[in-house]
Amino acid sequence: MLKRALENLGNRTIQGVWRMGFATRFFFAVLMHSGTAFRRFGLTIREMYFTGVLSLIIILVSGLFVGMVLGLQGYETLQTYGSEEALGVLVALSLVRELGPVVAALLFASRAGSAITAEIGLMKATEQLSAMEMMAVDPIARVVAPRFWAGVISMPLLAALFSAMGVLGGYLVGVQLIGVDEGSFWAQMQSAVDFEQDILNGVLKSAVFGVAITAIALFEGYDAPPTAEGVSGATTRTVVTSSLAVLALDFVLTAFMFRGLN
């Protein structure tokens, strides 16, 4: 019984390491075959439509609501300390540093990441990738790499839009609805939010998330067993794995960026 369990564990570990190695090799193959994605940028633009433009609505609406909630909650808390004017700082810093990149990435993982996995998985299941290979066209260069770069380019733009909408949402609730002084809302925000420290680091974070999510989504699709359960399982794994990866990477990056500034 115990032996069985140990054997099982060992097997799973070996399988996991094996898959990890394959994933790494896949990732480098994508990087190596990225020439086409830039030489024929039309391919990448086409994929940006599916990953970026189609994610816009969910990103914009969620950003607005998250900002509005931050405005309400932040006001409640700050009011007890009599520093309501700091609402702008609270809303902007939490969005630009954390919520913008992270929540946008989580939404992106479930909206675009799952779509990428399902698409690649189905292309594999219906032998489209095989057919492409038989037509002397490398599917990694023609199908995978443009999707990868489209995701990497789209993610920071989506995160920036999310943060901007969030700040607007906070402004709407805080200034227009509750009546925090407009001047100090913006002024305090501006003096507290630093371009390099906060905004650029946020953009950098979201670019890293973009790389992680699209790489995971593409790999899961490419590695999916060519059956209906295989593809649906891979889609679920994409959302779970890339969400976990985003949160873990966020911790690591935050530790790097905002620690030990002195």
Binding site: M123, T126, E127, Q128, A131, E133, M134, A136
Partner: peptide, 27 residues
Amino acid sequence: LRRKMGMLFQFGALFTDMSVFDNVAFQ
């Protein structure tokens, strides 16, 4: 060598995101 070979897959394996015309024009 593969450019000199054609292959018809079991269920066609047409690229589902392209029209018939673009499928044939692909190569």
